[in-house]
Every structure is written in structure tokens, then in C-alpha cells.
Nucleic acid binder design. Structure first.
Lengths: 356, 356
DNA sequence: CACATGTTGTAGACCGATCTACAAGAGGGC
DNA sequence: GCCCTCTTGTAGATCGGTCTACAACATGTG
């Protein structure tokens, strides 16, 4: 159990009185600062224990550090994000820093409010994930407080970044599908393909890699992307329409696992199986390994990314001034949702042949 | 985009100077306090806008409110918890309160550290989920700061509670399984069954309800509980052993969806299907609805619970002093992971008959 | 008109830490 | 023995808000 029921009203003053020293002395002890004799440290520590003293983070924040790291996260329903959080939690667990998470309220502007809320609370550093936050805005922020951004590919920022090599990951998927023999491969993405803040975002990179892989395979004329907003149900709906078309694709590569689950759902809805329509995702969320799902996907090593982000942040807090950009290499995880394409009979087949 | 890149260095003093009023006046305006003329409010608001002023939460915390609500959560990998968070986020989204989440570090004591961290940060109220936190400790805490606990059945606490009617939910599952014709129903639980802090915890209530339902059905001698720590892989391992026994059960009722997924996994591993071994869970996490899983489970209405908890907390912050205990009624969601038991041949069958 | 009442704004103490500047004492070197 | 440096501890300013007490002024009342 915790040391004692939290009283909340013991101040540094009380500790100083109890130990017979000055406030400044107590302050030094709790900050592990220079200039404390072992004897004094012992007396102060004892007084702290005895009184159950806990320093007020608010008061600390007025002058010094809060020993708090803020983690902004765009949504919680997507199981990929908790992976990042777990990595960060682990990296911070034996540091003096406490992690607090601010979820971006979907009802408000993407991420700004949550990040601001963290900064308002004087966190010593910020890890942010929301992909659509303006890099320029983050740059300005990074001048004030250490910032690590996860998942943006910008390399000229003032903030550190941790990204997966999304191009490599998407190419892994495409090579796998092409090797299986697929030619009609549709890419499902939330991405509009327009430039702007969105460029540099993972799904934009994956989209570009998909196009590139198709071109390289001589399938430039079969490039087809379908847009679907995030979320399993949305992807399911869109995929259902797609599968109802006479010349439906033989494989769907979704930019994330969540929509990939939606596609699998739609495949089942349509009375089909991955033997007819292969499905690949991206993220390797835990459920992807379940035999009922068995989704071929790309392991981004989210936990490692979260850990890395936290480590970079601690370095920054400790004083590093050069910007660092870390890239994590993803791995393909082949499961049974991708299989060789099966020749289809009738009109669809003829049309496909005619088009070649 | 957000109003402007965060400067961070504009204080209430600057705003006061800009608007030509006192600090106290600005303070009143930003707190929406009594005694402000419309004219002054306009001038101050304008100055705030112009300078991009944001009040320091640290400074506020030294005397007044921080407009922050803390949410302690035991783990993030279990998708049920994000549901709670989403409900709370929604309930707070048009309040002046910001939600921050403190994850319990699995490496440290269950929940205490995270809750303390929130209190240290002077949150205006705490929502806590970690089931194993000592109620007495929470009671002491509740004397200092408003506390709402989710998922404990204690009714004599000083803190408010929001719980699902776990007994009713478990009975729904059991009635369903019994109606299907199952008699050999094993309950999979992380619960030790010992008294102490653990009593009053959801899985303890569900376990008790399982026992009760078996007794009532005249199956008291077939009561069998199997312990497995939280997590899909652990449950899978335990279930695999269970299924290898000659007189394996015809149905497994897991205390949560995550272990239920593990059981389904094990069923597949063993070359079986839910036609041989039915599986039921509890929580109705999103993936349960997927056709590849199709898990019969109990919808706890996690989002509603999170919303309710936030609402109770806001009431407390607003001044309510009587304790409230809210119970949410769960609903059974029948899917295809539960089916009527199929008669088995040979030894297992005979043994079952002999035992009756 | 004198006086109570209500409204609007201000001055200044206060919250609980950190941080800077400095004093007192202990050793060390010449 | 004297000066210099290093160590240890303290006093007091400071951070940026909120809160209390009160002043100034307008308004209503007998």
C-alpha cells in the first residue's frame, strides 16, 4: 500500500521546522541538489517520512521543474496508441518523471487544445502524436519546451521526431502482395492526397509508397485508392461497396489495422473469405494475431517508438540542443489474411483480361 | 489552427497593463467571477486575445482551482478502459475542465503512485479505476479532494462510485449458457476468492454470481473456477491445458473479454470451434463484434460509466456533499461464440453421465 | 437630504516551492 | 599564521496567479 493516506497539507515549511533546518535545505534535499551533508540529508529525509510530506507540483512549477512529461494522443480507441504509451511509461518508470496523458478531444481542433493544456500545466516536455498539428506551430512551441513528435517525417523541424519507416513498411506489404500474384490491389487510406500539413504524415508516405510499388511493378494503370475516414465501421462500409463491384480487387491494402479489420468484416459480410480477397493492414495491433482475424500487417514496434520518444525527451530535458530524428524499421508480419489470388470466372475475369 | 504559437511568457500582469486595469480585474474576468462590468470584460478579453495570454495552471493551483480532472487508469492495453475515458472526455468536453490521465505504472504499486501524482498536481477531482486500491486509503483521500471510483461495489465509502451491476451481468451470461443446455461451465477469473481489499471488485462479484447460478441450477458439484492472470496470452495458456483434459467443459465463462479472446484462441489452437466449446466474456470490447471473433459477452456500457463518473465528479466539485453510488445495468450481447453443447462420444461422455 | 445598499474596481497579502547571493566554518598551501 | 578555496547552510526575493478587505461611486429609501 502507499505510505499513508494523503494529507495534502504538509508543506516544506513544516518539514523544515521538524528537521530544524531552513526551507532551502529541504528544497535541496528533495531535488537532490548540490551542497547537502549526509547528516542533514538523513534528518530531512526522516522528517519527510514522518510527516508524509509531498512537494506541491504547482508550487514547483512556478520556478523550477514539475518532473512531469505530457503525452498528447489523438484517440484512445485505436489500440496502436496505447502501445506508444506503454513504451513511454516503461522508459519513464525509473526516472523521476511522471507521465500524464492528454487525449485530444475529438470535438475540438485536432490536438492543439490537448497540447496547450499540457503546456499550461508546465510539463517539462511534450510528446505529441496528433498528425495534423501544424509543424510551424510545433516549431514555435519547441522553442519554449522540449518536444518530441511521433509519426511525422519532417526532418527540418526544431523538435525531435520518432517515425517508422513508413515507405519501407508499405513496400514490404506491396512486395508481399505482388509476390503472391496480386495485380488488382486497392489502397484504403484516410489520406486526401493533397499537400499541406498532411504531407509528411504516415498515411501520406504509405500512399506514395503504394503508388510507387504499383508503378514499379508495371501496374500504374491499376492504381486505385479508396478514401475512408478512420474507424472500423467506416472502412467496413466503404469496403462493402468496393466488394460489390463486378471487378473487385483481389487484395486490399489498408493504411492501418483498424480499417483493415473493417475490410475483413466487409469481406465476411459479402460472403467471401481472404481466399477471394486478401487484406493487409499496418500497425500489428494485438488482435491481428488472433486466429479469428489473422491479419497480415506491419509491425511498427509501437512500444519501441514510445520508449524512444521518451528517451529523446529526457535527453532534451537534460540539455541536449541538437535536433534528432529517429527512424524505426518496421517488419512485415505475414498471416492468413493474405493468400494467392484465385482466378475468378465469368465477366469479371474477361474484363480483367481485356484490360491488360 | 490554434490561436497562435504558444509564447508562454505572457502573464496576468501584462494583460492588466495592456488593458489598463488591475491584476485582480483580469483574474475576475478569466474566472468569470462576480463584479465585472461588461465594458471592463470586453477590454480585458481584447487584451487577452491580443497578447495570446494563457493563465498558468501552476500559479492557479497555489490558491484556487486548476480546472483539471485527473483520471487514473490501471492499464491501457485492455480496450475496455479507453471506453471509460471516452465517456469522461465527452462529458467534460464543454466544461471548463481539462482531463488528464495518469496510467498506473505496472512496475509499481497498483494505482497509488498514479493517484498520488494526480493529487500532487492539484487536480480538482479524481476518477480512479484501479480495483485493488485500498478503500480506506481512498476514503482518506476523498476527505481532501472529490473522488469518484469506477468499478467498486463498496456502498459505505466517502467517495462516489459508478459500477456495473456485475451480479446481474454474470447471471445474464449464466442463464444464457444454461438455457443453451450447458452444464459443465467453467469460470475463468483472475480472482483469488480470498477476502480483503479484493472483495467488492467486479471479478469477485462475477465469480460469486457464477457460483450462485450454478447452485441454483442444481449444478453445485460442477462448479469449477480456473484462475488466470489478466491478459490474452495467459488466459490462452491456461485454457489450452483445460481443453486438453478428457472431460473438458462445454462452456467457458471468462470474467473479461480479454481472457475470453485467449480462450477462443486456445479453442482454435486445440482444433476445436465454439460448436464444441462455447465461450462467453464480459465487457463487449469493440473487436467482440467482429465476425472472426463474434464473442458473446456483456455490454457494461463503459462509455456511459465514464460519462456518469465525470458528471458525478463535476457535481462534487460544484459542492455536493452527500455520497452517491450509481449502478449501470449491463446487457447481454449474444453472438456465435456460444452455442448449444454437442454430445461427445466415448469416455468423456460416460464419465459425465456417471457423475450425474 | 442623510443614509443604507449594491456595484465595480483596486491594493496587497498569500499560496509553496525554487533560486540567487552570501555568510560561516573547515581545510589546505605557502 | 594568513589567505584562499571548498563545503554547507541560510535569508529573502521571486514565480503568477487568487482571495480578502476595502474604497469609490451610483442608486434607492424614508
Amino acid at each position: 500500500m502507499a505510505s499513508r493516506p494523503p494529507t495534502g497539507s504538509v508543506t516544506i515549511e513544516d518539514v523544515a521546522r521538524e528537521a530544524g533546518v531552513s526551507r532551502a535545505a529541504v528544497s535541496k534535499v528533495i531535488r537532490n541538489a548540490y551542497g547537502v551533508s549526509p547528516a542533514m540529508k538523513a534528518r530531512v529525509t526522516e522528517a519527510i517520512e514522518k510527516l508524509g510530506y509531498r512537494p506541491s507540483v504547482s508550487a514547483r512549477g512556478m520556478r523550477g521543474a514539475t518532473f512531469t512529461v505530457g503525452f498528447e494522443i489523438p484517440e484512445l480507441s485505436n489500440p496502436f496508441f496505447p502501445k506508444l504509451l506503454e513504451g513511454a511509461t516503461a522508459a519513464l518508470s525509473d526516472s523521476p518523471y511522471q507521465l500524464i496523458i492528454a487525449p485530444a478531444d475529438p470535438a475540438h481542433a485536432e490536438g492543439y487544445r490537448a497540447i496547450q493544456a499540457l503546456v499550461d500545466r508546465k510539463v517539462d516536455g511534450v510528446i505529441a502524436v496528433s498528425p495534423m498539428v501544424d509543424p510551424a506551430w510545433l516549431d514555435a512551441l519547441a522553442a519554449t519546451v522540449p518536444v518530441v513528435m511521433i509519426g511525422r517525417h519532417d526532418r527540418l523541424s526544431a523538435y525531435d521526431t520518432v517515425v517508422s519507416d513508413d515507405a519501407a513498411g508499405a513496400h514490404l506489404v506491396m512486395r508481399h502482395l505482388l509476390d503472391l500474384g496480386h495485380r488488382d490491389i486497392v489502397h484504403l487510406t484516410p489520406e486526401s492526397g493533397l499537400a499541406g500539413v498532411g504531407s509528411g504524415v504516415p498515411q501520406a508516405i504509405r500512399l506514395a509508397a503504394y503508388r510507387e510499388a504499383m508503378q514499379e511493378a508495371g501496374l500504374g494503370d491499376r492504381i486505385r485508392t479508396v478514401r475512408a475516414p478512420n474507424g472500423e465501421p467506416e472502412a467496413r462500409r466503404v469496403a462493402l461497396q468496393l466488394l460489390a463491384e463486378p471487378d473487385r480487387p483481389t487484395a486490399v491494402f489498408a493504411s492501418h489495422d483498424e480499417p483493415a479489420l473493417g475490410v475483413l468484416h466487409a469481406v465476411a459480410d459479402a460472403g467471401l473469405t481472404p481466399a477471394e480477397v486478401s487484406v493487409a493492414g499496418y500497425d500489428d495491433i494485438q488482435i491481428a494475431a488472433h486466429p479469428g482475424i489473422s491479419l497480415t500487417t506491419v509491425d511498427q514496434h509501437g512500444e519501441a517508438m514510445g520508449r524512444l520518444a521518451a528517451e529523446l525527451l529526457l535527453e532534451r530535458i537534460a540539455g541536449r540542443s541538437e535536433t534528432r530524428h529517429e527512424v524505426v524499421r518496421p517488419d512485415l508480419v505475414v498471416r492468413t489474411s493474405t493468400r494467392p489470388p484465385r482466378p475468378r470466372g465469368g465477366a469479371a475475369r474477361l474484363r480483367a483480361v481485356g484490360r491488360t
